[in-house]
Design a protein around this nucleic acid. Structure first.
Lengths: 199, 199
DNA sequence: TCCTGTGTACTGACCGGTTGGTATGTTACG
DNA sequence: CGTAACATACCAACCGGTCAGTACACAGGA
């Protein structure tokens, strides 16, 4: 019903996000944002205390949503450890299409938050990684993953593969998000080498 | 003998690199660089045509050296495909210690180059990836890697794993660069899952 | 040996333009 | 009539970059 609620604050955040992604945080002036919306700086500072507060908003929203989605996957008792790896990878790759801009801004512009604000975001970001690490650890204990697996490094590898996709993956390319996620999961789970080892 | 040749141009580049890494390209003013060196802006612009020209210098030096090193590894006929994967990974991880600042600046600040300059760097950057892709393709043909392997995605996975390390790896941590590289190579080559599939 | 010319390396003052941010109106509406 | 939602005008600080001028080393001619 009330589908159209302009909500200037949200509008500012959305437009800013697009500009931050395209040109970067520092390279986007408050004036640029206002020009894009056809308002003046008075409006901006009526809704946000500072340019940095706006950036904080974007960061908080992104990581919190991400953690929620991850939580659902990891808590799902019906999934095997293999399926959890697939699901996390798919979630991150698909994410590029869904909230790619948010993700790119998140990784690239975090350093522009002041220390106090960073201290709120970084633990959340780390939590995301630690959750994966914990899942791998349990997978090792449950016998699903090799005993030689270092859970910490496995988590970093998974995140590296997924997050690096932000640099090249386009949803309208030759491979779909699902295909890419599946291929990555296969590599991480089974490796690319033909068997020539004892097991 | 003539070990000590101050060479102001090199000095400026070194100091700038450190500042760019710490604070970012845009956030580092030419004045900051000059203050650090105790010279004036006139000196800076005597040696560099612009702030961006300096950034280009840093980029060019980095990617060219990297491509050279990679070439040596990939051209080495004595190495197996497995060893080549290990060597590339080790090269990139060890690189973090050796020229970590250069690498971080390279990935983060490339967008501040103008189109013309980017057109010189991007192909070199792509070449690095394509070389890995080609190596994987040959490995598949030679029967060293699974036939199901997508060389393009495998190259992206390898680069993702290695390049993401820039975000967390510290050479003085609990794991050495060699250990990390080996563990990553094992994951990519053999996977983390225990065998439960047909092959 | 002295004088003079010349290029290098650098200084310091300055430019127009932009920045994030603010103080103070003005307007529309409940 | 009061308050929420803006507009307007402005600020000091800073930005990348320019430019005329200069200290000094060194070369060469007399």
């Amino acid at each position: 019903m009330n589908d159209e609620k302009p909500d200037m604050r949200t509008l500012i955040a959305e437009v800013s996000l697009a500009l931050f992604e395209k040109r970067g945080f520092t390279e986007t002036s408050v004036q640029d944002i206002c020009d894009e919306l056809g308002v003046t700086k008075g409006t901006f500072y009526y809704y946000f205390a500072s340019k940095e507060a706006l950036l904080m908003d974007i960061h908080e929203q992104y990581i919190v949503t991400l953690l929620e989605e991850q939580g659902k996957i990891l808590a799902d008792a019906d999934l095997t450890y293999r399926e959890k790896v697939c699901a996390i990878l798919y979630m991150l790759i698909r994410d590029i299409e869904k909230r790619g801009a948010r993700g790119r801004v998140f990784f690239r512009e975090m350093r522009h938050l002041n220390d106090e604000r960073k201290a709120k975001i970084v633990p959340l970001r780390n939590q995301f990684r630690l959750n994966i690490e914990q899942m791998v650890r349990e997978g090792v204990e449950a016998g699903a993953f090799r005993s030689a697996t270092n859970p910490k490094l496995a988590a970093f590898a998974l995140l590296g593969i997924a997050n690096w996709s932000y640099q090249w993956f386009h949803p309208d390319g030759e491979l779909s998000d699902q295909e890419v996620a599946d291929a990555f999961a296969a590599m991480l789970l089974e490796g690319i080498e033909v068997a020539s080892r004892d097991r």
